[in-house]
Amino acid sequence: MNGKWWRAGIAVVLVVAVLLVFAFPKPATEPVRLVYLPAAQSLPLFVAMEQGLFEKEGLGVELQRMENPNQIIDALVVGKADAGFAIATGISAVADTKKPGAIRFNSVFCGTGETERHNDALIVGVNSSISSFADLRGKRLGIMPGIQWNTISRKILKENGIAESEVTLVELPISNHLASLSSGGVDALLTIEPTVELGLSKGIAKIAVDTPTVKWVASPICLGASGLSAEFARKRPAEAEKYLRAVDAAIRQVQTNSSVRQYLVRYLSLSEEVAQAVPLPVLYSRSEFSTDVVGAYQEFADIFFEFNVTSVRPDARRLMLWTQ
Rank of each mutant, 00 (worst) to 15 (best):
L43E: 01
I91R: 03
S129T: 15
F46C: 03
T29Y: 11
V21M: 09
D74Q: 13
A121T: 01
W6P: 00
A17C: 02
V108C: 02
M66K: 11
E62D: 11
V78G: 06
Q71M: 01
K99I: 15
K80D: 13
G3Y: 13
C110D: 01
P25T: 07
L37V: 00
I87G: 03
G84V: 01
P69C: 03
G125R: 14
K80I: 07
A86S: 13
A83T: 08
A102L: 05
F22P: 00
L37G: 07
V15H: 02
I103C: 03
T29N: 11
A8M: 09
T112I: 01
V77T: 07
K98S: 14
G79R: 08
T112P: 01
E116P: 04
Q51I: 03
G111M: 01
G101Q: 07
Q51F: 02
V61K: 02
A83R: 05
Q41W: 12
F54D: 05
N127Q: 13
G111K: 09
V61I: 08
E50T: 07
I123L: 07
L20G: 15
G84N: 10
V94Y: 07
N119L: 11
H118I: 11
I87W: 05
R33H: 14
I123N: 00
V21D: 07
G52Q: 05
V61N: 06
I10P: 02
G113L: 10
R33K: 13
F46A: 01
A28F: 08
A11S: 08
